[in-house]
Nucleic acid binder design. Structure first.
Length: 956
RNA sequence: GGGCUCGUAGCUCAGUUGGCAGAGCGCACCCCUGAUAAGGGUGAGGUCGUAGGUUCAAGUCCUACCGGGCCCA
């Protein structure tokens, strides 16, 4: 006995075995990198996604639509953020009681893939037919869909990966054409001119990505454009003299100063700031004016019988030239925009082969543009319009394949007119073939732009709210939508041109488009490149189509010439509300104001997918595709700079998953304010891992103290007398955290949920409640009512907490849930959030708020006293405090309060003015609970024990 | 250059209609050793991007500027 008293280790040995110490199979170490893939397999085996669909039959649907990432490359941090946020939506809405079918998709067509494939093919590409290139592209896209699918699954995202949507699938292609047919029937699709980069060598349009810039020496000229009123000349500058025949305007900047200068008896007008450099003189201008005063001034073309006007444009600069910009809408993008605004023709006298057509002056007809440069200069010199010519070296675009210089040239393209009013037949919506041709009794009129502005202002919800402004600005400034591209890898625009020798508009009617749609649905769009025209139109009868152009009605279909244009890929992805949501029967009812509930993408998609889904949907259905638009920001590094592979500051998702696991990455995502820029650094994942461990350990403590406890059989029903118990307080806290987190989930505020959950684990549970419980959990008799009441509460905490965490930490929550139920086949993801209404019935003293607030000051006093009196262990302290105003102090269990302070004894004592800490070291210590309880005395086994501990051991 | 947006503690972020600058992490010091590669307590940290203005009072409203981001040009 004396040994036991002198050697504390002996105490341990004696009584440790008599305690109810925590025990669980839920390990402290998560080992996510190994265990998460195992979870994936288990969910696959269980059929989690299909099971949820079965369950969902009776539930209200929540229609959430995935925007398609591009099927190219490995996923990056932006995908991680986007996909995890989307998964939060899917999982929180599912657990909130909705049916949330979620079809992931990929954007498969388009230039980046075609470009990559062409690069890989190298010289071989030149001899290949479009269909051969397309097959390579398809294989390429499939490869990356597969790769990315695996990576997205690894992020533990829940989606219909068994049946994703691919924009290159036949059923998808058919559905896109059905949307297009609707737009055609609204009469908003037209053919117009637009300048594009044109390779003369390959006689094809090129995209920006297919250009390579090299230095090139050209003749630059300063040219005098004589004023119609004879009062001098406008001086312009250009490095492409061959574009002068297409000059239709001169642009000035309204705010710049322009001056009239006398040179060799002529009056020349140019920007004051550039006069010295151009005229090589210090002469002062005769007069000056603002550019705005020049607007409207008429001038004569130097060698064509034509007058044009000065217009204003804000892209005019004072870096080169004269401040007066030669404007040829057929030969430049800026020029084209200006031309549109000013109502100028998109005039382009240059043919496919780079020679001038018969609208050009006769001395240029048939001449190539490169030869024309010299001819034009010579002509200007002869007529006295040339002020100066010099060789000029500048960076100039070249065809990436042939390395030959390209030109800007207006070509015929397909457009959607966003300013033309149309009406939409009333429900049922078309985009499936029901409404062909014009229809009466449609919905209200208005052009696409105006309709889009209206719904943006009034009907759509934006998260964050400023998305509304951003969308509006982009809609206001957008031009007509150019739908066509001159490429191979895409969805063909199903237009047919008349046979050679026949004049007329191309055949493109609602019925002809739907006929091709039907064919594509059956055979895929490869048919366009394989089948003869009469087969492409096998579902079409021109004679019965009132919209068909006259020539087509009597034409032998086999003589038609299929067009070579494909759709802008944005039209394909912008039709996904039809090609995925409506086609799969997932849409909201036809009479609902929108097709889906939510689109969620990066904020760049205000211009991209959001807008380009909104426009076709308004055109086809007369209503927006989404009720709500949720956006997130972009990844930047810790200095706030953009992340890029070339910048060397990009993080690899595979590496992050390997180092931290998906749940930690997801926990990080949930911690973000994702409205705006998101700073990323490896360090932040380490910190997220630390927080994750904290949460995991808290759950582990809950589970480890529920070992052997059967909630259904042993749960304690709270009586009124329990209202002042610490367990009642915890129950109230549970309802609070549940309310907070569910409200945050409902409003997509995952950061708020994250914060509430972490603080609940870290503070409410770990620091306050669980710490206070240790004594009773470990030392009370295993089946004591007090311990059972606490375990009932622990169980409730576990079930509420684990389910709230499930959307954020799918693996860990699942693992914990199976540990809680003891059934390895259970799956928390098949359950709704825990209903806490039954817990609200449990009586709770309203005094707990004041007590918990007071606890902070008690702890501070205890700390100070321990420092002052040299008391190491708080269990060597007793605390006496004066009664708290308006609190029924007498009704509280002093043992609860002592445990909340971590001391051996607690009392309300009106004889003290302030918190008083007593040194209890002279009193005997219970060798089992280590508390200096007043009841400690020697027991029948010889140990010094308190009443409670003696009772627990059955000793007297 | 234009539209939208952001700048608060070392880090991540809260800060409603103007009313005494907050939380968590990290850090420092201490405790426990019966959650143990865990757990608890206490504490230090800020000229709210800069400069003006409105106001009794500004992180918050206004103006300009500086530095980021997205989308355009």
């Amino acid at each position: 006995m004396s040994d036991q008293q002198t050697d504390p280790r002996a105490d341990k040995k004696t009584y440790k075995k008599t305690l109810n110490l925590p025990k669980t199979g839920f390990p402290m170490k998560a080992n996510l990198v190994q265990n998460e893939p195992a979870s994936l397999k288990r969910w696959d085996k269980l059929g989690l996604y299909p099971k949820l669909r079965e369950q969902g039959g009776s539930k209200k649907p929540y229609v959430f639509h995935d925007g398609p990432p591009y099927a190219n490359g490995s996923i990056h941090l932006g995908h991680l953020l986007n996909k995890v946020l989307k998964d939060f939506v899917v999982r929180t809405k599912t657990m909130a009681g909705y049916d949330v079918p979620y079809v992931p998709g990929w954007d498969c067509h388009g230039l980046p893939i075609e470009h990559k494939v062409m690069q890989e093919l190298g010289d071989k590409a030149k001899d290949m037919q479009p269909i051969q290139v397309r097959r390579k592209c398809k294989t390429y896209a499939e490869k990356f869909v597969k790769l990315q699918t695996g990576q997205m699954k690894r992020l533990l995202t829940l989606a219909d990966y068994a049946d994703p949507y691919l924009t290159m699938n036949p059923r998808y292609e058919g559905a896109v054409l059905e949307v297009f047919a609707d737009l055609v029937s609204r009469d908003v699709v037209f053919r117009g001119l637009k300048p594009v980069h044109w390779s003369i060598e390959n006689q094809t349009a090129l995209a920006e990505a297919e250009l390579e810039y090299y230095d090139r020496e050209d003749t630059s000229v300063f040219v005098k454009f004589d004023r119609v009123d004879g009062q001098g000349s406008l001086m312009i500058w250009t490095t492409t003299p061959w574009t002068l025949p297409a000059n239709l305007a001169v642009a000035v900047h309204e705010r710049y100063d322009y001056g009239e200068y006398e040179v060799n008896g002529q009056t020349l007008i140019l920007a004051v700031e550039l006069a010295k450099k151009v005229l090589k003189t210090d002469a002062e201008p005769k007069t000056t004016c603002k550019g705005s005063e020049l607007v409207g001034l008429e001038y004569k073309h130097p060698f064509i019988n034509r007058t044009s006007k000065v217009v204003a444009a804000d892209y005019v600069t004072l870096e080169d030239g004269t401040g007066l910009v030669h404007t040829a809408p057929g030969h430049g993008v800026d020029d084209y925009q200006t031309g549109l605004r000013e109502g100028l023709d998109v005039y382009c006298p240059v043919k496919d082969d780079g020679t001038f057509d018969d609208t050009a002056p006769d001395w240029l007809q048939g001449v190539s543009v490169w030869k024309a440069n010299d001819l034009v200069v010579e002509k200007l010199r002869e007529s006295g319009h040339l002020f100066h010519a010099e060789q000029f070296t500048h960076s100039y675009p070249h065809d990436w394949r042939g390395k030959s210089p390209v030109i800007f040239r207006a070509t015929e393209q397909w457009f959607v007119d966003v300013n033309k009013s149309f009406s939409v037949p009333s429900a049922p919506g078309s985009a499936g073939g029901s409404a062909v041709g014009s229809s009466s009794g449609g919905s209200s009129g208005g052009a696409m732009r105006q309709r889009a502005l209206d719904v943006t202002a009034n009907d759509i919800r934006f998260f964050p709210e400023w998305g509304r402004k951003r969308m509006r600005g982009m809609l206001e400034s957008r031009p007509d939508w150019c739908l066509s591209r001159q490429r191979a890898w895409g969805l063909p625009i199903p237009a047919f041109y008349p046979p050679e020798g026949v004049e007329g508009e191309p055949l493109l009617t609602p019925a002809s488009v739907l006929a091709v749609a039907k064919l594509f649905r059956e055979k895929g769009s490869d048919a366009w490149f394989l089948a003869p025209p009469q087969d492409l139109l096998q579902h079409y009868d021109p004679a019965g189509d009132t919209d068909a152009p006259p020539w087509a009605k009597s034409c032998d279909l086999s003589k038609l010439v299929p067009g070579a244009d494909i759709f802008d890929v944005w039209f394909e992805s912008g039709s996904s509300w039809n090609a995925v949501i409506r086609q799969r029967g997932l849409a909201k009812p036809d009479d609902a104001p929108t097709v889906t509930d939510l689109y969620l993408e990066g904020s760049d998609q205000h211009r991209g997918w959001f807008q380009l889904s909104l426009l076709p949907c308004l055109g086809s259905q007369g209503k927006p595709p989404f009720t709500s638009v949720l956006t997130h920001g972009f990844m930047v590094d810790r200095e706030g700079r953009k992340m890029s592979k070339s910048g060397g500051n990009a993080l690899d998702v595979d590496v992050l998953l390997k180092d931290y696991g998906a749940d930690v990455c997801r926990w990080w995502v949930s911690s973000l304010n994702s409205d705006n820029d998101i700073k990323v650094d490896p360090e932040y994942f380490r910190l997220a891992g630390e927080e994750y461990r904290k949460v995991r350990n808290t759950i582990r403590f809950l589970l480890s103290n529920l070992d052997g406890f059967n909630f259904k059989q042993e749960k304690v029903h709270f009586e009124d007398a329990d209202a002042t118990s610490i367990d009642a307080w915890m129950t109230r806290e549970l309802t609070k955290v549940s309310d907070t987190v569910l409200a945050a989930y409902d409003g997509f505020q995952y950061r708020k949920a994250h914060e509430a959950l972490f603080n609940f684990c870290n503070d409410t549970l770990s620091s306050v409640y669980l710490t206070a419980l240790k004594d009773r959990l470990y030392c009370d008799a295993p089946d004591s009512p007090r311990r059972h009441r606490t375990q009932s509460t622990l169980y409730r905490a576990a079930t509420v907490l684990i389910r709230l965490l499930a959307p954020l930490l799918p693996h860990t929550a699942d693992e914990a849930w199976r540990a809680l139920t003891g059934n390895g086949d259970d799956c928390v993801h098949l359950l709704p959030f825990q209903d806490v209404d039954c817990m609200r019935q449990i009586p709770v003293s309203e005094d707990w708020g004041a007590l918990m607030q007071a606890r902070d000051t008690w702890l501070k006093s205890i700390e100070e006293a321990r420092q002052a009196q040299g008391i190491d262990n708080p269990l060597d302290c007793g605390v006496r405090v004066p009664a708290i105003k308006d609190v029924a102090c007498a009704s509280f269990d002093l043992a609860d309060l002592a445990d909340l302070c971590g001391v051996s004894r607690f009392a309300f004592d009106d004889s003290v003015q302030t918190v008083t800490v007593d040194d209890l070291r002279s009193e005997p210590r219970c060798e089992r609970s280590w508390k200096r309880d007043g009841t400690v005395k020697q027991r029948s086994d010889g140990g010094m024990l308190s009443d409670r501990d003696a009772q627990a051991l059955g000793l007297t």
